[in-house]
Nucleic acid binder design. Sequence first.
DNA 1: CAGGTACCCTGGCCGC
DNA 2: TGCGGCCAGGGTACCT
Length: 315
Amino acid sequence: MPELPEVEVVRAGLAPAVTGARVAAVQVLDPRALKRHLPTAGDDGLGGHGVTLTAAAGAARSADFERRVAGITLGAPERRGKFLWIPTSAAAVSGEPLALLAHLGMSGQMLLRAHDADDDRHVRIRMWIEHPDHGELRVDFADQRLFGSLALDALRPAADGPDLVPTQAAHIARDPLDPAFDDARFLALLRTRASGVKKLLLDQTLVSGVGNIYADEVLWRARLHPETRGVRVGPRKAVELLTALRAVFAQALAEGGTSFDAQYVNVNGQAGYFAHSLNAYGRTGAPCARCGEPIRRLVIGGRSSHFCPRCQRRR
DNA sequence: CAGGTACCCTGGCCGC
DNA sequence: TGCGGCCAGGGTACCT
């Protein structure tokens, strides 16, 4: 459930169930779902990307995670871009508070289940929690492709404000729905860059939460060709782009996110409806909803881009 | 800073 | 029915 609307649906869904709950037990079924968890995690948060775990290293990582997460109390879930975390009662050796960090990657899910419910497909980590009001529940992390992961990570003051963020999300910009998002800074940066706007929208250090689906939708809405260079976007058009971004995110959020199959669901396993509202993404050959011209597909940076060749002219 | 590629994975679908 | 190739919502490292 990858992009901002989907991650936000998950965050909001987890909130009432986990806030104030105590983790009674943890079971790691597949250590590859701890890609971002370092054995002494939280003290300096380098992810273990691209590293295949040996069996021994995987077992050690699982044991470390299970031991350190069991018994902690969870706070209210927070999010920055596509990173989701739950502050905990635990602290790192440095004294910094630890958070349970989740990134859903391409196919990750956080599922709330009865404590003794049968497993869903691809469950990698299980956590049994006890909530003072809601009793015993289970939080399952399921992930078909294992690009996502859970981790314990230290919280530090963000570079762009007083709020605390996990070290692994320190480089992530605020998202456009964040009240503290700096519009002027984003617009100025966008208009100094030589890259195409599609690539810029996907750059999580410029603006967070945008993935391949919503980038295409936003560019369609703002009538911008995905390869238009940032420096070629005028001030009015740049504002139009940011406005379109907020509108698309708000609508997708209201519709529960985008689900193409059972893979992308909220904490109760239910799909969102925004797939019915897509105007560009995945619509190669279908008529543009504005002008009827067939939507075209283009590969940018190894990923599909969908756009209307008539409404979104290259300039 | 910009671009390209490779990699971390599973699984659905299509053509042969 | 099998198999190879391509595709998929993300992020990072490492080249040029």
